[in-house]
Simulated assay, not measured.
Amino acid sequence: MDKSKLLANRVEVATEDVEIPGVGTVHVRALSRFEVLLSQKKYPDDAMAQERFSLSTALLDPKLTEDEVGVWQRSSLPNEINAVSSVVNRLSGIGKDAAKSDVPGDGND
Score class of each variant (00 low, 15 high):
residue 98 A to P: 02
residue 73 Q to D: 07
residue 52 R to M: 12
residue 100 K to W: 00
residue 89 N to F: 10
residue 48 M to A: 13
residue 52 R to K: 13
residue 74 R to M: 10
residue 79 N to L: 12
residue 62 P to C: 04
residue 79 N to C: 08
residue 94 I to N: 01
residue 77 L to M: 14
residue 53 F to C: 04
residue 87 V to P: 04
residue 79 N to Q: 14
residue 77 L to W: 11
residue 61 D to N: 13
residue 90 R to S: 06
residue 59 L to G: 03
residue 70 G to H: 07
residue 95 G to D: 00
residue 81 I to A: 10
residue 95 G to H: 00
residue 47 A to K: 15
residue 88 V to R: 04
residue 93 G to Y: 00
residue 93 G to M: 03
residue 57 T to M: 03
residue 88 V to H: 05
residue 83 A to E: 14
residue 52 R to F: 06
residue 55 L to M: 15
residue 79 N to R: 14
residue 86 S to W: 09
residue 58 A to R: 01
residue 64 L to S: 01
residue 62 P to T: 05
residue 69 V to W: 01
residue 79 N to H: 13
residue 74 R to F: 06
residue 80 E to D: 10
residue 67 D to F: 09
residue 93 G to P: 05
residue 97 D to V: 05
residue 65 T to L: 04
residue 97 D to W: 08
residue 64 L to C: 02
residue 49 A to T: 07
residue 79 N to T: 13
residue 72 W to L: 15
residue 65 T to K: 07
residue 98 A to Q: 01
residue 67 D to R: 10
residue 65 T to D: 08
residue 51 E to A: 13
residue 71 V to M: 09
residue 58 A to W: 01
residue 94 I to C: 02
residue 55 L to K: 02
residue 93 G to V: 01
residue 80 E to P: 00
residue 48 M to F: 11
residue 69 V to N: 03
residue 91 L to S: 01
residue 60 L to C: 02
residue 83 A to N: 14
residue 56 S to Q: 06
residue 49 A to I: 06
residue 89 N to C: 10
residue 93 G to A: 07
residue 95 G to E: 00
residue 56 S to V: 05
residue 86 S to V: 03
residue 47 A to G: 12
residue 50 Q to A: 09
residue 63 K to N: 08
residue 56 S to G: 11
residue 91 L to V: 02
residue 88 V to D: 03
residue 54 S to V: 12
residue 97 D to H: 11
residue 54 S to D: 11
residue 91 L to Q: 03
residue 84 V to P: 05
residue 68 E to D: 11
residue 57 T to D: 00
residue 100 K to P: 00
residue 77 L to A: 15
residue 83 A to C: 09
residue 49 A to M: 11
residue 66 E to G: 05
residue 94 I to G: 00
residue 96 K to Y: 10
residue 83 A to V: 09
residue 86 S to D: 15
residue 68 E to W: 04
residue 53 F to W: 08
residue 83 A to I: 07
residue 49 A to R: 09
residue 68 E to Y: 05
residue 54 S to N: 14
residue 73 Q to A: 09
residue 49 A to G: 08
residue 53 F to Q: 07
residue 77 L to T: 15
residue 49 A to V: 08
residue 96 K to V: 12
residue 61 D to P: 00
residue 82 N to I: 13
residue 53 F to G: 02
residue 60 L to W: 00
residue 83 A to W: 05
residue 61 D to F: 07
residue 98 A to N: 01
residue 87 V to S: 04
residue 96 K to C: 05
residue 66 E to M: 14
residue 55 L to Y: 02
residue 51 E to Q: 13
residue 51 E to I: 12
